[in-house]
Simulated scan of single mutants.
Amino acid sequence: MIDTADDLRLDFLDARVVDVLERLEGDARTDGALLGAVGAELGHLGATPDSTALQTITTVAEEALLPVARPVGRLLYQLALATGAKTIVEYGTSYGMSAVYLAAAAQQTGAQVIGTELSPHKAATAAANLAAAGLADRARILVGDARETLRELTEPVGLLLLDGWIPLHLPIFRILEPILAPGAVIVSDNVSKHADKIGDFHRYLAARPERYVRTALPIDDGIDLITRVR
């Protein structure tokens, strides 16, 4: 029998990291109405949202924490350790909760976490949270439209977290696909909650079975765990 309490413990992390994560979790509990507004706006995004639509939903979500659930955070930490990825990329940083989990692992492996955030306010807050956790030297955040900022990357990406606006998971993936390392792991979050907006990405992967293996995991709002075979 699984001890779910043990599954949620954070005692493997530095006390400063735990303090930041617990503070963010507390803040997220007050986000209910705001998250509802963000969800409603997300429903208006089409399959290929333009910059105006993205800026609109980003403005609506300016004060929304958009947290990663603790089981997902723990999994990200484990994957960052297990893959030994030297470059970890996160699409959709928000206030930096998932970046803190990833950077905590990067502290041990010597990796660098590269986050992306359209909102300058959120990017600054995420950077402050990483600094409070003692992880500022392990992460940097690219501010602006990730479809542009991520094009500057050239180093092989060993771990990729897709946790931004769901309709852009495939476009962002395709931008980074040429620099995904063999054996790279991709985590796509919120896939069951927004299943109607992730079909194109699933079809893209399914059409390349020799290159990608995808497993759906029933964690929180659903995640896809994808491995680049070659």
Rank of each mutant, 00 (worst) to 15 (best):
L159V: 05
V157P: 04
L168W: 04
G164L: 07
I172A: 08
P156W: 08
D163V: 05
V157H: 12
L159S: 12
V185K: 04
I179P: 11
A146S: 10
I166N: 12
A146I: 07
L159D: 04
P182E: 09
L153S: 03
T154D: 09
W165S: 13
V185W: 14
L150I: 07
D189Q: 02
P171D: 07
L153I: 11
P178D: 11
E152P: 04
T149D: 00
L161H: 04
N190V: 06
P182Q: 03
E155A: 15
V157M: 10
L150P: 02
E148A: 15
L160A: 11
F173Q: 06
L162H: 05
V157G: 14
R147G: 14
L162C: 09
E155R: 11
L176K: 13
L150V: 01
G164M: 11
L159W: 08
I166L: 14
T149K: 02
D189M: 01
L150S: 08
L180Q: 00
L170Y: 14
A181R: 02
A146M: 06
P167N: 07
A184N: 03
I175V: 15
L160V: 02
I179K: 13
G164E: 10
L161C: 04
I179F: 11
T154L: 04
R151D: 06
H169W: 08
L162Q: 06
V185N: 08
I172G: 02
P171H: 10
H169K: 04
